[in-house]
């Protein structure tokens, strides 16, 4: 795919979205220019805006990978929410095990535990598909409910911290193992992890024979099988990597944000990640930018509410418009002559 083409089409989709959103707010009696300015002010104009945007974006990068990586192998996985939750619970358990360990050892262990739990969770759905013919979309959707139910069971019983009366939650990980903010910018370390993991998976998916094999598999599974590719193993690995990314998001929600597992892990990061994965057309590097854009929409949505007294649903209108138009713009790929090599041009 031509990357100039991708950038141009996405930029056009973004402009069209803003134009339509402008019409929408105009019908509500607000000046679209004021609204655009507030969108900008709330998302990128100041340090606090950028910090809000990036804080919102951090978990989305990782949960988006949970859909994007398996999608490259031809699977539609929507289990990011569940993988994040099991990752968070595993992180708390790991934190209990390594209480008293040196900071780096403890945090690494907890992160790996979260990633491993999330990875196995989605790999299980991949295995069900490859060996038992269970549709992975349905199974990951149901696994979300199972993960959330298991977490509720644990935090209301076996792992409950009875000291925390009004908010039902698990035990807290040791304070010494809590991860703080990044240097310079007040955003937690999950952001750095998200960017690094996205870049690593970009290289893996775009620059290695494994990644090429996955693209072949995603393009035509039969051809991949005929070519002798180990498709079962590749599907499992893709599911594991995607699930591990979402599990890592859960690990950072625990180590950097809450310190414990609670219903605050279930706030829709997994589902928003699906949106990011589709917007980025399953490209791990593009996920970074699109997560930031959606994070910015969410961050400025708050300011939009406050300045114009608009309901929170306005932000969802903007997100929905963006999603529909970017998906519709997919139809434009390959049809704009200007982006085609001269020899392919039709007119």
């Amino acid at each position: 795919m031509n990357s100039v083409e991708a950038v141009a089409i996405n930029a056009a989709a973004f402009v069209i979205t803003l134009a339509l959103f402008g019409i929408y707010v105009a019908t509500l009696g607000h000046n679209p220019l004021d609204v655009y300015y507030v969108l900008w002010l709330g998302s990128f104009a100041r340090q606090i805006s950028i910090e809000s945007t990036l804080t919102n974006a951090a978990p989305l990068m990782l949960t988006a990978l949970c859909t994007a990586i398996p999608a490259r192998a031809g699977l539609l996985v929507i289990g990011g929410e569940g993988a994040l939750v099991v990752g968070g619970v595993a992180t708390v358990l790991a934190g209990m095990l390594v209480a008293g360990a040196p900071f780096l050892v403890g945090v690494t262990f907890m992160s790996l535990a979260g990633a491993l739990a999330g990875g196995l969770w989605i790999a299980f759905a991949g295995a069900l598909r490859q060996y038992r013919g269970v549709n992975e979309t349905i199974s990951t959707l149901l696994l979300n409910y199972i993960a959330i139910a298991v977490m509720y069971h644990l935090i209301t019983g076996p792992m409950r911290d009875w000291e925390r009366v009004l908010k039902t939650s698990s035990w807290s990980i040791p304070d010494a193992l809590r991860v703080g903010a990044l240097p310079v910018i007040d955003v937690h370390w999950g952001l750095a992890a998200g960017i690094v993991v996205c870049l690593i998976l970009y290289v893996v998916m775009r620059r290695t024979t494994f990644g090429f094999g996955v693209d072949v598999l995603g393009g035509n599974p039969r051809a991949a099988q005929m070519a002798g590719l180990p498709i079962n193993r590749m599907v499992l690995i893709c599911c594991f990597m995607g699930g591990a990314a979402a599990g890592l998001a859960g690990a950072f929600e625990v180590t950097a944000v809450h310190g414990f597992a609670s219903e605050s892990l279930v706030v829709g990061f997994g589902y928003a990640g699906i949106l990011v994965a589709f917007l980025s057309r399953q490209n791990p590097a593009a996920i970074i930018f699109l997560a930031i854009i959606l994070g910015g929409v969410a961050a400025s949505g708050g300011l939009l509410q406050r300045r114009f007294d608009l309901p929170d649903a306005t932000t969802q209108v903007l997100q929905g418009l963006l999603f529909m138009i970017v998906l519709a713009s997919n139809a434009a790929y390959g049809r704009l002559n200007v982006f085609q090599p001269a020899a392919w041009r039709t007119a």
Partner: peptide
């Protein structure tokens, strides 16, 4: 009075508070 609804109990709360203090 400035108001914001549907703010989950996550890292977002702190950012909303900061945004209210610094922008509003």
């Amino acid at each position: 009075v400035v108001e914001q609804e549907n703010v989950p109990e996550t890292a977002e709360v702190e950012k909303v508070i900061q945004s209210m203090i610094e922008l509003d």
